[in-house]
Amino acid sequence: MAGIAGLVTALKPLLSLERGDISLSDLLQKHYQELSAEEMSRILRKLEKQSNEDYGVASNINDTKAREGVQFAYALSLSKCVGCRRCAHACLAENNQSRESEDDIEMSYIRVLELDKGSINVEESDQYYDGEVPKKDKYYMPVQCHQCQDSPCTKACPVEATWMEPDGVVVVDYNWCIGCRYCMAACPYDARRFNWKKPSLPPESVNPNQNYLSNRIRPQGVVEKCTFCLHRTREGKYPACLEVCPTGARVFGNLLDPDSEINYILKNKRVYILKEDAGTTPKFYYFFD
């Protein structure tokens, strides 16, 4: 019996082919790293058309490649952050996350944790605080993907749908992901999100500047995550979360440039790595000043 059920499940993609949900070329699409420029271009145009049909917005989906001599890293000052959550909301808007209906899980890649001063126990943190901030005797720790150099999520993926790019950003090919969520279980930072449903977005909320590996509107049933806004940062801009921070707590830059702001922080400040004992070598650092 189990054998038959398994066979039916294995053949399920063919059923959607029959129904016309996906085309043969979708089904036979190669892995991202094996795609030629022409094939990629064809896929991007197709995704743009699909997105236009589904969301009524003419999106511009690119495949911006990593640049030579760049390794991205992020630092965040725990002394400056006041927990206003502007970063978490900027993330939602930038990355086209579902946020129309009441029951939507707003899958912001950033969770801002409120902790007691003098403690660093994230188990006792509160991510649902509200009101005026910063509260007395509290401090705030935004957590997002740490882009680990030794990333457990990419090792857990059974189909290699997630990997680290040459500039150090861990990405997901949403067309290749099978939605098993092993990567989410492997992540020590709770940084990955699963699309339980097709994202609902009113046309005015769609950010039309999109990338294949980052903020294009994801299909249902795949995992997504923070990509350090690679559609912005690979073009020399700052991530959306940094741009809205009213306190200047966030520092972003190129690790390979000895004069970058991020290297200044790593050399001169007291730097703290969250869950350092997990041994994943994050490229996201907290510091005090």
Partner: peptide, 17 residues
Amino acid sequence: KFPMLQSLPAPTYPKRA
């Protein structure tokens, strides 16, 4: 000294096992 800021509402985060 900066005045207190109103925090934006918490998004609904997926629960974690």
